[in-house]
Design a protein around this nucleic acid. Sequence first.
DNA 1: AATGAATGAGCGTTCATTCAT
DNA 2: GATGAATGAACGCTCATTCAT
Lengths: 245, 245, 245, 245
Amino acid sequence: MGTLTRKQREIAEREDLILSVARQLMVDQGYLGLTMDKVAAEIEYSKGTIYQHFSCKEEILAGLAYESAELRRELFERAATFRGRPRERLAGVGVADHLLVNLYPQHFAIERLIHTHSIRDKLSEKRLAQLEACNEGCKNVITGLVRDGAAQGDIEYDDPQTPALIAFGLWSMAFGANLIAAAGSVDLEEKLGIADHSEVLFQNYHRLLDGYGWQPLSTEWDYHATVQRVQEEVFPDEVRRLSAS
Amino acid sequence: MGTLTRKQREIAEREDLILSVARQLMVDQGYLGLTMDKVAAEIEYSKGTIYQHFSCKEEILAGLAYESAELRRELFERAATFRGRPRERLAGVGVADHLLVNLYPQHFAIERLIHTHSIRDKLSEKRLAQLEACNEGCKNVITGLVRDGAAQGDIEYDDPQTPALIAFGLWSMAFGANLIAAAGSVDLEEKLGIADHSEVLFQNYHRLLDGYGWQPLSTEWDYHATVQRVQEEVFPDEVRRLSAS
Amino acid sequence: MGTLTRKQREIAEREDLILSVARQLMVDQGYLGLTMDKVAAEIEYSKGTIYQHFSCKEEILAGLAYESAELRRELFERAATFRGRPRERLAGVGVADHLLVNLYPQHFAIERLIHTHSIRDKLSEKRLAQLEACNEGCKNVITGLVRDGAAQGDIEYDDPQTPALIAFGLWSMAFGANLIAAAGSVDLEEKLGIADHSEVLFQNYHRLLDGYGWQPLSTEWDYHATVQRVQEEVFPDEVRRLSAS
Amino acid sequence: MGTLTRKQREIAEREDLILSVARQLMVDQGYLGLTMDKVAAEIEYSKGTIYQHFSCKEEILAGLAYESAELRRELFERAATFRGRPRERLAGVGVADHLLVNLYPQHFAIERLIHTHSIRDKLSEKRLAQLEACNEGCKNVITGLVRDGAAQGDIEYDDPQTPALIAFGLWSMAFGANLIAAAGSVDLEEKLGIADHSEVLFQNYHRLLDGYGWQPLSTEWDYHATVQRVQEEVFPDEVRRLSAS
DNA sequence: AATGAATGAGCGTTCATTCAT
DNA sequence: GATGAATGAACGCTCATTCAT
């Protein structure tokens, strides 16, 4: 067993190595700058060896997306452990998303690409299922918090879909906003007078939740203070690294 | 004058032909599936001829993006002519966006790509300015409606950036939601119980505006009826075509 | 007759215009940078019109070469009018060559190209004969001076080919030296300690003529002074323009 | 070791194959006639394979130029081993040049092209240095022989640059003469009565050296006999092959 | 006579993938 | 299992030349 296990470990390590090199290439040079030749040169193994781990280029991309999704889920779940009222814990998830986008911008770049037909078409069923499972986890964190809010009487709704509605609303708003900001194709400062899009996103999150009547309303509660506490209590390391960079 | 005009007309028509073929290729096969050879084969002119209209592949893409942006602006401006209270007219802009995404899904696909560094880098200054001017028009429609709302006392705000905040909030939410839905990378029905993401988007729009305290609140006013009226009074043709498809 | 003549004059002028634009392009951007499109854009006539003057790109090149050859012949013939001993007049031809290469470097660049099979193959017999006639003139200047030298008893030879031998020797040496210097592919200063290749060429000219025993030998006569006088008496304008540049 | 060595040998052989095919294309059809497609078709490997040996077309050309320069250096160095007086050994270098131009006319054609900015610009520093080193070797053979001549008292000069002057003089004369002859753009026989330009070049070499006063003068010594002996003693194989062709 | 839109063969180059060793 | 040489289809782009108007 010893040998086999070591071999398996080596294989897993090499897989990680391939993915980390591929991510760096993606970040630095974009999707077209990620080539099998460059990956092979960087990992100091041959191209053939890469194909023993990933059956095609797209599978590498899926591997990256999986790591990104895992990271997101982990951060979301940690955010939900914050000790506070449900809406505060949901604000914490917003902090997690902010950290993800700013501390690991590569991950966000990859999550974008994976939403493309031409790439998804080449992925195996298994890989797709894996990715979905991960996203499922993220969604469950949010819908769970909405239900916690309902259980505590902070939010009332008749439509049983409301948790999903809110989850989708927050997700789409964050995804859209981060995409627009990341692209840099619109000069938000000049055109919209928006200097810090994260702050705007934060405000719109809360206006949306206010719209759903979720207590305490942002007009009555200092969610900036909540963010502060989440940063200190749940993500001290991440915040430090982000400040340092 | 006759001859010259006919030639010029032919040229303009061919430019449109190139763009329409290119758009279809983009939609069907993605950016990498859009090749000069395929366009040439489809339009039944030679590749050289294409290059007399567009200096490089990216310029074709910009041409597509421009058409899309123009269309969006036109629809937005028409929506704003709806006779009703400001928030109703803003709801009309939502209708315009919905029509755009559903009646011309290709346009949305292209608006995504143009937000990419590697593509923008190859565009001429002139083309970029053209594109920005168009987007500026769309933004102004929305911020204008917010200010109309304030003028009529339907919404109150101290922060002068509020119109921009709302514009960005609606834009990012719509952009994100449409992107997620278009990609098909998440089975919204199965995973979130969301059968009609447009309806969800509609609800979240209004929850957001409710959150900003914009009267009349969606809990007190039937904005579905407003949508109905906008469809009938401002976009009767578009709605008919959408139903037919 | 008036109209026709005016037309002919216009045609000749346009031909000159085409050639001057083509020469500039050749100089600035090399043979591959000379394209019919660029020429057409520059002369503000259409490409079709160019083809009414020149049947193909190579014919334009031949036109340039002809102008260059004409210029060379003219300068050589003027040099031969210098009042001095035959060998001094031959030194004057050296001055003419130096002026040509330095005052009109474009001409030299073109003379190089025209010695290429792939280009000559596309030229008409007529054009080729025209070019040869011009070069013939240059050669005759030199062989004529050698015969003058013999007639005056400054040089003696039995072999009747000697004038041609000397002409070829000077020509090949000048052509080779100017080519090497123009290419800049060898750092003459660093590799050979040659700062001024024109001066070296001058010295080698005279060593060659000394080798043929042509009186007065360069060891006995100050040919630098001859050069000075030729410059002042035959080429005052050219020298001034060269100094100014 | 066997396997590896065989592979490496195959690769080296293929590199030679590419170069020899490329040289033939260059000779037959000129630089523009040398295309990657033709090379690939001729060597019966794919275009991709060529790019594993040479990163661009220009690098192939540099490869050819290097081979040519190496060959020249080798022949020059062998010529300098001839047992005779320094000027005789220099005459031997003339024989080497003659053999090079006539036995390997392709090499000469390539040496011409490599003196072009547009080509040199695409070469790596390393390749350029390699080429220069080779040319340096050729030059040193000649300047070395001049200094030998001075050491033996056969030639006297005050100017320390004299060896470089003579080297440049011979080089430029040979380069120019071979270029003119190779181009075929001038009918030397008809226009100049020159049937054998090599013989003319030989005579002008010696007139130049006579002009420098290098003993024994060509009027006092039978350098044709020297050439004969060099051919027999130093280049017997080459002469035989040249006769056979 | 003048135009310039149209051509189309051709170019150098790239890169995911395969497979003999 | 690991290699990397070989592949070859595909790519974006160029430009001398033609010819209907």
